[in-house]
Amino acid sequence: MAIWDLTDELNHPLDFLLIQNGFISLFHQQAVLDEATSWLRNHRYKVVKVDAAAWQSTVDLHQDVARALDFPDYYGSNLDALNDCLGDVAVQAYGWTASDAGLVLVIDGFEAFKGKDASTAHHLLDIFARQATYAALFGHRMMCLVRTGDPRLELPLVGGLSVAWNHHEFLSTR
């Protein structure tokens, strides 16, 4: 993973802005999310999207995430297995390759699933944040962009950090 230019402190690129406060960023406006994912794709990030609003149960969550990240057939479809497989994704065993600048998991409609199973929704983000930290130890960039229809959504600590709104919307969500 290339480092960012310290001399350009006031003009950091979008990827820096998205992960400077943690590996999970909140979005509300679809257009802002679309602009961010377009920028990331144009800068060689692999962007994969899941629709949490369609998840009726944890079974749906596990199937959707496993498909999006190319988990192996033996994936156990539980939170422990999710943690294990995301650890493999962190070291590029599957889900993305060294030719990608990084991996971006976009979770759309997060508040809908959070309303059905707040504990599992939180664990999903917490596991991703921990594995993104693990990925960084090997010079790999992973981030999760979470879009919600609730501009006032607040989440408990994820990976030991507060979950921040993206830099375009952070003032409008207060």
Rank of each mutant, 00 (worst) to 15 (best):
L103M: 12
L103Q: 02
L103R: 02
L103I: 00
V104P: 04
V104Y: 02
L105F: 03
L105Q: 05
L105A: 01
L105C: 09
V106P: 04
V106W: 01
I107C: 13
I107Y: 01
I107D: 07
I107P: 04
I107T: 12
I107E: 01
I107N: 07
D108P: 09
D108Q: 12
D108W: 08
G109Y: 01
G109I: 03
F110H: 02
F110D: 00
E111I: 09
E111C: 06
A112W: 09
A112F: 05
A112G: 09
F113R: 03
F113S: 00
F113A: 03
K114M: 15
K114R: 15
G115A: 15
G115S: 13
G115Y: 05
G115C: 08
G115R: 11
G115L: 03
K116T: 13
K116Q: 14
K116A: 10
D117I: 07
D117L: 04
D117C: 10
A118E: 15
A118I: 01
A118S: 15
A118V: 07
S119G: 10
S119Y: 14
S119V: 15
S119H: 15
S119N: 14
S119L: 15
T120M: 07
T120V: 15
T120K: 03
T120P: 02
A121T: 06
A121E: 04
H122F: 07
H122C: 08
H122Y: 07
H122G: 05
H123D: 13
H123T: 01
H123R: 14
H123W: 10
L124Y: 09
L124H: 05
L124I: 10
L124G: 06
L124W: 11
L125W: 07
L125Q: 08
D126I: 09
D126N: 15
D126K: 03
I127Q: 05
I127R: 09
F128L: 01
F128V: 07
F128S: 06
F128I: 10
F128H: 07
A129L: 03
A129R: 00
A129D: 11
A129I: 03
A129F: 10
A129P: 02
R130V: 07
R130A: 09
R130F: 02
R130C: 11
R130I: 08
Q131L: 05
Q131M: 08
Q131V: 06
Q131N: 14
Q131S: 00
A132R: 03
A132S: 11
A132M: 00
A132L: 10
A132F: 02
A132P: 08
T133S: 13
T133E: 13
T133Q: 11
T133D: 13
T133C: 00
Y134T: 02
Y134I: 00
Y134N: 00
Y134F: 14
Y134P: 04
Y134M: 04
A135R: 03
A135T: 05
A135S: 04
A135H: 09
A136Q: 13
A136M: 11
A136H: 08
A136C: 08
A136I: 00
L137Q: 12
L137D: 12
L137Y: 05
F138R: 14
F138V: 05
F138Y: 15
F138L: 09
F138E: 11
F138C: 04
F138P: 06
G139A: 10
G139H: 09
G139I: 08
H140Y: 14
H140R: 13
H140K: 10
R141Q: 12
R141W: 01
R141K: 13
R141Y: 00
R141D: 07
R141H: 12
M142G: 00
M142Q: 04
M142K: 06
M142E: 02
M142F: 08
M142D: 06
M142S: 02
